[in-house]
Design a protein around this nucleic acid. Structure first.
Lengths: 226, 226
DNA sequence: CGGCATCCGGGAAGATACTG
DNA sequence: CAGTATCTTCCCGGATGCCG
């Protein structure tokens, strides 16, 4: 006898025609935006989401996925056999939220309270590349890098002053980086010398990764004098 | 005997190096982002914030302002005599959050659940202009409009394919619009004929406002077929 | 009256255990 | 592995009251 709470989904929404307010109605609940983040590079399984969203509990994750699906941002799908596993996938419209991560991330990176040494998911690392990539620094540089981050395999391509990232096995890559996401972040954003990063391994042309590191720069910290 | 809750400010934050996650640490609490929205066009008083943030309770607003001030996004200031009233003002870095409203608002406007007839604050209306303005439609158009929205006085200038908005009395304006924000939104975004909008009054060159309305277009609604 | 603290009820989030 | 059930904690919202 389920108590049929029926999830009224009313009452805690802003009653505001402002687009940003409605955006918060859609992804303003705790964890909701970060769930979308993890889906930006392709479908994920429930357990993978739970692992990468460090700290989220199973019931909350279930609620968020239900809510996001009800809003048309996420689609529950079952992969074809023999995989036959259930995955959650962002809808076409859901994927269009990506610029929010860029703008919000770039702004928040100026916060004095931002600690870049905290844990980081593989998807977050890829999105940070797309956010902090500076075409002016890259010039006409052209390269393909593979990243082996725990179980995750990512490919990053820089070409024509643009950076693209997707989930996939490394093929035709100039260099393959094996490490944890925070270690890669330390190298790219902290400009920590590679020899100082135990646990980060390069296979292939190490000089390509050295150049890659130079394509990024963090925005200056904001003044907190007030 | 204060119980010294000391606002540990710990525990409910995401423990994530991702910039977007830290952005949520800063403005992810309920109402926080909308408080920043209301400060985008200049300092506001506590009571004004409470009136425009329809539904926020006084204690929550106090908590948010305290938190935003502790984060360096908001500054509490007392206006010079004879005003001598206390106002809350976004810091320089706090103002830089504005692009978040543009991107989030443009994305959320595609939601099938977005209801543009809901209440709207004067600041929200101005930000929506900056968000939905299409330079291609404006061409070389050049105009200055005044808006009298209840107690609020706003000025909007279109020039050189750019739109600017600020709080101020109408001077040297081509036309002055007196109405409520939702009525103006109905005219601009709903393309409702002016004669159908009782309560909206134009003073000056009405044709200028007619042209102004043509400078905006809402993005198409997203497919919810999935 | 504006700004802010206190108290309380309801509900969302967090943690853990349990089930198919 | 993918959730569900249950309990606890704490945030949110509303009301009240203090104080300059």
């Amino acid at each position: 006898m389920k108590l049929e709470k029926v999830t009224s989904e009313k009452g805690r929404r802003y009653h505001d025609a402002c687009g940003a307010a409605h955006g918060l109605d859609l992804v303003g609940d705790r964890w909701a935006l970060l769930v979308m983040r993890e889906l930006m590079l392709g479908p994920r399984r429930f357990g993978d989401l739970r692992r990468d969203l460090c700290g989220v509990s199973a019931n909350v994750l279930t609620q968020r996925l239900e809510g996001l699906e009800a809003s048309g941002l996420v689609h529950k799908r079952k992969l074809a056999p023999p995989a036959s596993v259930q995955v959650y996938e962002a809808t076409e419209w859901g994927l269009e939220i990506e610029p929010v991560f860029m703008v919000l991330g770039r702004w928040a990176a100026r916060s004095p309270g931002h600690d870049p040494t905290l844990p980081l998911s593989a998807v977050s690392l890829m999105l940070s590349f797309k956010t902090m990539f500076d075409p002016g620094l890259a010039g006409g540089g052209r390269m393909t890098l593979g990243f082996a981050l725990g179980e995750d395999r990512m490919v990053v391509r820089v070409a024509d002053g643009r950076l693209e990232a997707w989930r996939g096995e490394a093929e035709d890559t100039d260099v393959v980086v094996t490490a944890t996401p925070p270690l890669v972040a330390a190298a790219v954003y902290g400009k920590v010398p590679l020899r100082a990063l135990v646990g980060l391994a390069l296979e292939g042309d190490a000089a390509v990764f050295e150049r890659f590191v130079g394509f990024f720069h963090l925005p200056p910290k904001a003044e907190v004098t007030s």
